[in-house]
């Protein structure tokens, strides 16, 4: 016994949310060869089948690439600071991949350890996540290696698992999910089979062990050699969350804003004195892997990676985390 929803039912849901002035975002084909999570204008833009995953991640709906933190106004010697409108639009993230949804509970931690980032938290409260279990994977996918799977529940309020074309089994995981789906489901005897995930590629514990003890290893030199130092991996990663804070405006008024930033950029850690703790690309690559598989686990008890494979797919020179991780896993560093 299960509950199901049809594609029409999902379209109706999208339409209702949009009609109430709320935001709905989901995967959409923005052009040939480019699928992204975007705010939807209507259900016809929503892509439900025949794709692996969008090239961007869900994080931008909770932690946008650009965000105004507060405004300032200057008159003479005086300064006036004012809060900008806090996030208040409810949003539905629909047909998200489980590897994207799983990133949200992970990000909750860093945005809330000892002081809470209300910008993130507000959006999080206003968000309902409907995931769509994966029925296919590609060479870059490695969710199973980091303890997730094509139908991992983490971070989902509701999960859809494909039955026949145009029909989905619905699994409500939270109260939010249940109230979203209330009155929309039909009972059915069909139960979706558990989709197969990619084969396990490495053991995160081994990676952690390696990272801990090989800070000065020549391995990083060879890994960092072909990296070009762009931020494509970090910016499309569901869990990367580094940011920059700058002022934007003129001498009279403006706002302090935060923008995404990446540990792969050469200026990221450069001191005012000119000294740079991570002055070459191998050091920056090492930081990225260490942060995900050693530092974050040490701080928060879990890996800062959901195995989505975006870093590999989006890397212009085919590096990504996966190749590094599998090399470590296979002992190729030895």
């Amino acid at each position: 016994m299960s509950f199901t929803i049809t594609q029409d039912g999902l379209s109706k849901l999208v339409n209702e949310w949009l009609a109430r002035g709320k935001r709905v975002a989901g995967p959409s084909r923005v052009k040939r060869d480019c699928i992204l999570y975007v705010p939807l204008q209507g259900p016809d833009q929503l892509l439900l089948e025949d794709f692996i995953r969008p090239a961007n991640s869900l994080k931008e709906f909770l932690f946008p690439k650009h965000e105004r933190l507060f405004g300032y106004r200057i008159n003479g010697n005086g300064v006036e600071l004012f809060e900008l409108e806090p996030p208040k639009t409810e949003q539905l993230l629909i047909a998200a991949r489980p590897c994207d949804a799983a990133a949200l509970p992970i990000l909750d931690q860093v945005f809330n350890w000892d002081c809470a980032d209300e910008f993130y938290n507000r959006r999080r409260q206003l968000t309902t996540v409907v995931t769509l279990a994966c029925s296919a994977h590609d060479d870059a996918c490695f969710c199973t290696s980091v303890g997730l799977s094509p139908c991992a529940e983490r971070g989902s309020d509701v999960m859809l698992v494909k039955l026949d074309r145009g029909k989905y089994e619905v699994r409500c995981h939270t109260e939010k999910g249940r109230s979203l789906m209330e009155g929309r489901l039909e009972p059915s005897d069909q139960v979706a089979s558990e989709p197969l995930g990619p084969e396990k590629r490495f053991d995160p514990a081994e990676v952690r062990e390696f990272v801990k003890h090989n800070f000065a290893s020549a391995f990083w030199q060879s890994e960092g050699l072909t990296c070009l130092g762009c931020g494509a991996c970090a910016y499309t990663c569901p869990t990367c969350h580094c940011f920059d804070i700058i002022d934007e405006g003129n001498a009279n008024e403006g706002a302090r804003v935060r923008n995404w930033d990446s540990c792969q950029f050469s200026m990221f850690t450069q001191h005012a004195s000119g000294h740079n703790p991570r002055e070459n690309q191998p050091a920056r690559q090492r930081q990225r892997i260490s942060h995900k598989f050693d530092i974050y686990p040490e701080k928060f008890g879990e890996i800062l990676c959901t195995g989505c494979g975006n870093c590999t797919r989006n890397c212009p020179v085919g590096i990504g985390a996966l190749s590094v991780l599998t090399e470590i896993g296979h002992g190729e560093h030895l």
């Binding site: 860093v110 945005f111 350890w113 000892d114 002081c115 980032d117 969350h241 580094c242 940011f243 920059d244 804070i245 935060r258 930033d261 540990c263 990221f268 850690t269 450069q270 001191h271 005012a272 703790p277 260490s290 942060h291 050693d294 530092i295 040490e298 701080k299």
Partner: peptide, 24 residues
């Protein structure tokens, strides 16, 4: 230690030395 910092509260991800967040 004085590393480059932005947020000051362990979020922006740039002052760390290993798992040691200089800001915190």
């Amino acid at each position: 230690l004085e590393n480059r910092m932005k947020c000051g509260c362990g979020k922006c991800g740039r002052c760390n030395v290993g798992a040691f967040y200089i800001c915190k």
